[in-house]
C-alpha cells in the first residue's frame, strides 16, 4: 500500500473541495472494498477523504419513492421495515451479500461502486486490459467460469459489478443522486450509471472524478412489493453469485400487468432485461411464459468454454425467481 493522507470531511462541500484539489484521491466510507484494492496495489490514492461524518444517512418515504442515504450500511437498509415490506428483493439482495461483519461496515454508495472480482483484475501480476489497457485478457482462454456472458467485449469479459444490490436496484428503476460540488446535483437512473466495456474499459460508471453518490431513490410500485432476489452460488453464504435474478411482478387475475427483471453474475454490468419484461407483460403467469422470458433475457449471451453453463443457469434462476413471486 502506498503512503496516503487521510482527512475527515465535515460537510459535503469540504469533501468535494478536497477531491477537487486532489483528483487522484478517493472517498472512503466503510472501506471494505477500497482497502482491499489499495492493499493489492490495484488502487493507489495519495489522499483519502473520509465521508462518514457527512449527513448522508436516513431512510425516508418521499414522493419519488424511498430515499436512502448513501452512507446507510448494508445491514441497516437490508433490515429496515420499509425496505423489507416495499422492496423485498432489495432487502434480500443486501442480506444475501458478503458477511455480517462486512454488511455492518459497508455503505450503500460503496457497494454500488465495488469492482470486479475477476481473478486476473485482482492480481496485478496478471495482464488485464481493464487495469493496464492493451495488456491483454488471459481470462478469455483461462479461468472465466464466473465471468460474464452478457454485454461482454472482445477485450474484457469481467462482471464489472459482481455484487447483488445494484442488480435489484437496476430492476426497480432506482435513481442515484450524485453531487459534484455544493448545489451541483444530478439524478442518474441506475440503468444508465454503469458503462459497458467498450473502448473505455477503465471507466466503469458515469461518475465523474470527485463526484459523490449522496442518495438512492427507489420508486414505489406494486411489482417492487411483490419481488424477490434469487442468488445461486458455490456455497451457501459469503460468495458472489454465479447467477442471480431480481424480479418483480404485478399479477392481476393471473395476468402479468407489469414485470421487472434484472440478472446478476452474468452481465458485464447489472443486467436489466427489458426483453424479458416485454415477453412477460400482458401474458399469463405460467411456466411457459417464464421460460420464454428467460430465453429472451439470454438471447444475446456470448458464453465461452467454461461459462457456457451460465446460459442455462441464468435462465433457470430467472424462471425459479418468477415462479416464487408468482406464487
Amino acid at each position: 500500500m502506498n503512503d496516503f493522507s487521510y482527512t475527515q470531511a465535515a460537510t459535503a462541500k469540504e469533501a468535494t473541495d478536497l477531491r477537487k484539489a486532489t483528483p487522484a484521491g478517493a472517498y472512503i466510507a466503510g472501506g471494505t472494498t477500497l482497502l482491499d484494492l489499495m492493499k493489492a496495489h490495484l488502487a493507489e490514492h495519495p489522499q483519502l477523504v473520509d465521508i462518514n461524518q457527512l449527513p448522508l444517512k436516513g431512510i425516508e418515504q418521499t414522493k419519488d419513492g424511498l430515499r436512502i442515504g448513501a452512507l446507510e450500511t448494508m445491514s441497516d437498509v437490508g433490515e429496515h421495515p420499509l425496505v423489507v415490506q416495499q422492496y423485498p428483493a432489495v432487502s434480500q439482495a443486501l442480506l444475501l451479500a458478503a458477511s455480517p461483519q462486512l454488511r455492518n461496515m459497508a455503505s450503500l454508495g460503496g457497494n454500488i461502486l465495488q469492482r470486479t472480482r475477476c481473478g486476473y483484475f485482482r492480481d496485478a501480476a496478471f495482464p488485464c486490459n481493464k487495469r493496464v489497457p492493451g495488456s491483454g485478457c488471459p481470462a478469455l482462454d483461462g479461468d472465466h467460469h464466473n465471468l460474464a456472458i452478457l454485454g461482454v467485449s472482445d477485450s474484457c469479459i469481467a462482471n464489472s459489478y459482481p455484487g447483488d444490490l445494484s442488480v435489484a436496484l437496476t430492476a426497480f428503476d432506482a435513481v442515484l443522486t450524485l453531487e459534484k460540488a455544493k448545489g451541483k446535483q444530478r439524478q442518474v437512473p441506475l440503468t444508465e450509471f454503469y458503462l459497458l466495456p467498450g473502448n473505455t474499459l477503465q471507466r466503469e460508471t458515469v461518475l465523474e472524478p470527485g463526484e459523490l453518490i449522496v442518495a438512492i431513490t427507489i420508486p414505489a410500485a406494486t411489482h417492487a412489493q411483490r419481488s424477490t432476489y434469487l442468488k445461486v452460488r458455490e456455497r451457501s453464504s459469503y460468495a458472489y453469485a454465479l447467477a442471480s435474478a431480481a424480479v418483480g411482478l404485478d399479477v392481476q387475475g393471473g395476468t402479468i400487468r407489469a414485470a421487472r427483471v434484472a440478472l446478476g453474475g452474468v452481465g458485464a454490468q447489472p443486467w436489466r432485461s427489458r426483453e424479458a419484461e416485454r415477453v412477460l407483460t400482458g401474458q399469463p403467469a405460467t411456466e411457459a411464459t417464464f421460460r420464454a422470458a428467460a430465453a429472451a433475457a439470454l438471447q444475446g449471451a456470448r458464453p465461452r468454454e467454461h461459462n457456457r453453463y451460465k446460459v442455462e443457469l441464468a435462465q433457470n434462476t430467472l424462471v425459479r425467481a418468477l415462479q416464487q413471486v408468482a406464487g
Binding site: G119, F126, P138, D141, G142, D143, E234, Y238
Partner: peptide, 19 residues
C-alpha cells in the same frame, strides 16, 4: 491459469471453503 500457470483465486474470498 492454463497458459500462465499462476493461480487465479489465491485468497479466501474466491477459494471457497465451507461456511
Amino acid at each position: 491459469d492454463p497458459n500462465l500457470a499462476r493461480y487465479t483465486n489465491a485468497d479466501l474470498a474466491s477459494y471457497h471453503v465451507p461456511v
